Simulated scan of single mutants.
Amino acid sequence: MTADTLLLLLRSDTHRVTAWLRRGSVPAYVVPVGGWTAVVPAGAEARTSAPYDKSVPMLTNRPIPSGLRAALCFAVIDARAVLVVHPPGWRAVPRWLIWQTGQGPSGPTPFPAVRPADLVNVAGIVREDLPHVEGVLRDTALAPDELLHDLIDALGLPGAELLEPGAVRHASGAALVEPDERSVRRFEKVTREERDIAEELKSS
């Protein structure tokens, strides 16, 4: 089974992305790549307790402020490819695609579904490349990690090599960013209070 992995590409500078990561809970590497800033988890574990202790799902689901967009997230979670497109604009809504070998797009998503045109627009490539992107998404014989590599290539984006285990540690310009302890404590406090409220409602 393919291990969980993630590459997040943001149209912002490394300083702003670093500050954003410090306000989260996931240790991650920041790498400047071809006009984008790449984010790759530094390991499997976030700094928060279960069920929020897995770095890939935490980064995949983390909202991205408008100042860091456009952004594209390419992830493998539980042997499925997950794509999240964050268009530019203050009111822009993320779009999701969950993709499974042998099936293609599968299951409901928490937001509107990614369309091939969304990928082309956010990646900034020409519309003539749209059929190539559509062809990759139709190839249900691909493994999840193969789909991500082929899609990144079809979109003309950098950083596909950073999806390989351990590759980010040797990438040019890579810097490890640790989350701020105050941010982690604040997150734990909020989630603990939410669990307590849910338990109270359940028992009432």
Rank of each mutant, 00 (worst) to 15 (best):
H149A: 14
I98M: 12
A154I: 03
V85F: 00
A123S: 10
Q100A: 08
I77H: 05
Q100R: 14
W99R: 02
G107V: 04
V82Q: 14
V122G: 00
G107F: 14
P116C: 03
A113Y: 07
I98C: 09
E128I: 07
H86S: 05
V120S: 01
W96V: 07
T101R: 13
I98Q: 10
P87C: 06
V122R: 00
D145A: 15
R80W: 12
H86Q: 14
I98G: 03
V126M: 06
R127K: 15
V76P: 00
G135A: 15
W99Y: 02
P144F: 10
V120A: 06
P105E: 09
A92S: 15
V133Y: 04
L142M: 09
I98D: 08
V122F: 01
L130N: 03
D145Y: 09
A75K: 09
A123P: 01
D139P: 07
D78F: 08
R80L: 11
E134Y: 03
D139M: 09
R138M: 12
T140S: 14
A143Q: 14
Q103H: 08
W99S: 00
A117R: 12
A117S: 08
L119N: 02
V136E: 04
E146R: 09
V114W: 03
A79I: 10
S106N: 05
P144M: 13
L83V: 11
H86T: 01
A143G: 07
P144T: 08
R80Q: 11
V76W: 05
A79F: 12
L147E: 11
A92F: 01
A81G: 14
A123Y: 00
A81S: 13
D118Y: 11
A117W: 08
G124C: 03
H132T: 14
L97R: 00
D139C: 11
P88R: 04
P105D: 10
V85E: 03
L119W: 02
Q100S: 14
D78I: 06
P94V: 07
P131H: 15
P112Y: 00
A113D: 14
A92L: 06
V133M: 07
D150K: 13
A79H: 12
P112F: 00
R95C: 10
T109C: 06
D139E: 14
A113P: 02
T140H: 12
G107C: 05
R138L: 12
L137W: 01
P87H: 12
A117L: 12
G102P: 04
W96D: 05
T140C: 07
L142A: 13
A141G: 13
H86D: 08
D118M: 05
L142S: 10
V82Y: 10
I77S: 07
E134H: 10
G89H: 07
V133P: 05
